[in-house]
Simulated assay, not measured.
Amino acid sequence: MRVTTELWVSSLLRRAFSGGGFAAVERRGAAEAGAVMIVRRGRMGDVRLYAPAAQASYDEARPEERMFTELLHADGDEEAQKRIERETRFDPDLWIVELEVDDAAFAELVSVTTP
């Protein structure tokens, strides 16, 4: 059984803070089943944008873990914000979560797969 998006995001934020990182909800979507996009900011100003992985990425028909794929890696915020705006027009239930954590913490918090 999959937990609600609201519970999953709350857990993600708590785990990021407990590891010494920073996390914030930039946009709140549907509490039960909204999709989540993750904005990861680096110390040098780079931005990575992660979106839910395609269903084909999962081994099971009903996975228990949320998986993400990297959509964008840019030097600044402008390109990422344009992509987020397009996605939110398409999906008004979308959550946007921002993380500022190191590589090891990110690997523990978010499961990333290649497209």
Rank of each mutant, 00 (worst) to 15 (best):
L72Q: 06
D46F: 00
F90E: 08
D91V: 07
D59V: 05
K82M: 04
A53K: 00
A16W: 05
E60K: 11
T5K: 08
G34S: 13
V9C: 06
R83G: 00
A30E: 10
Y58N: 09
L99W: 05
G29I: 08
A33M: 09
E64H: 14
L94P: 05
L72R: 09
T69P: 02
T4V: 12
A51K: 04
D103E: 15
V36W: 00
F90K: 14
A61I: 00
S11G: 15
A80S: 02
L99G: 01
V101C: 06
E100W: 07
A105I: 05
R43C: 00
T113V: 15
D91C: 04
L109V: 14
G21P: 03
E32H: 00
R86K: 09
D91W: 02
V110M: 07
P52W: 01
G19E: 11
R2H: 12
T4Q: 15
A51Q: 05
D103R: 11
E78Q: 07
E98P: 02
L49W: 03
D91R: 10
V112I: 13
M1V: 08
Y50G: 08
D77F: 08
L7N: 08
A104P: 01
G29R: 05
V47S: 05
V101N: 03
S11N: 13
E32V: 10
Y58F: 13
D77N: 09
T4F: 12
A31M: 11
T5Q: 08
E85S: 07
R66H: 09
R83N: 04
